[in-house]
Computed example of a mutant assay.
Amino acid sequence: MTTAPTRLSKQARREQLLDVALAIVRASGADGLTLPTLAEAAGVSRPIVYDHFGTRPGLLLALYQRLDEQHRTAIAQALKQASPTAADIAGTISVAYFACATDLPEFNAVSSALKGNPEMEAIQHELHDGYTDLMADALTPYSPLDQAALRLHCVGALGAAEAIAVELNRGATTAADAITALTGVILGRIERADGRT
């Protein structure tokens, strides 16, 4: 007697489809990811994929959000293990940021594929704000800056992190040097405000 295959819940199916989508981007780049190629690779009918994501940009946006969530979760976990000093918090943020930049190259591929998409712009702002808040919250106990100034400092540090990540991904610097540079950027204004120059 054969048993019928287990039917996945809608959420479990979505996660499975995103896993397959990520594998496609790893193997073929974002250009290789379409709703039909996803349906074929996942072994499901096209209507199932269209039901979950609607359009190719909808699929790419869902994948981008998932990658961002993984990135932020990794940083939050790393921060829980960090020693309670400004230097260790800044170093932990830097290590986790560049680990993600090198371990999740699909992040940049998906982001590039969505350039010019108005919905992507709104989501990027929302995710950037969340990331800035995570960073500011982690640094608050060690910073003499008021919340507005610290948050603005974190915005600047994230801009620097993105620029350094580009250098790292094109092989113009090492991970160790990227981490040192970003840690210095994060600590710079905090230590100056604290009178430690």
Rank of each mutant, 00 (worst) to 15 (best):
L79A: 03
G29C: 04
L182P: 04
T3A: 13
A76K: 06
H128P: 00
C154I: 10
R14Q: 15
H71K: 06
A96S: 14
F98K: 04
L187R: 08
N108A: 11
G195N: 08
F107N: 14
G29F: 01
L18K: 05
A138R: 01
A12P: 07
A181Q: 14
G43Q: 05
A4R: 13
A175T: 15
L152T: 12
L61R: 04
S45Q: 11
S111H: 08
L67D: 02
I186D: 00
L104M: 14
A27V: 02
E126Q: 13
H52I: 09
G171W: 06
N117H: 10
A157I: 07
L17W: 08
L33D: 02
D68F: 13
N108D: 14
C100A: 15
Y97W: 12
H125K: 15
L8D: 04
T37Y: 03
E69S: 11
I24G: 02
N108W: 15
H153F: 13
M120P: 00
R170D: 05
I75Q: 00
T173F: 05
S45N: 11
A96V: 09
R72K: 06
D19Y: 07
G91S: 08
A109H: 05
L114I: 12
N108R: 14
K80D: 12
R26L: 05
E126S: 14
E162L: 07
N117I: 13
G43S: 05
R151Y: 10
A163L: 10
A87V: 07
F53I: 10
I24T: 12
G29Q: 04
L35N: 02
A136H: 00
C100L: 06
R192T: 13
L127E: 01
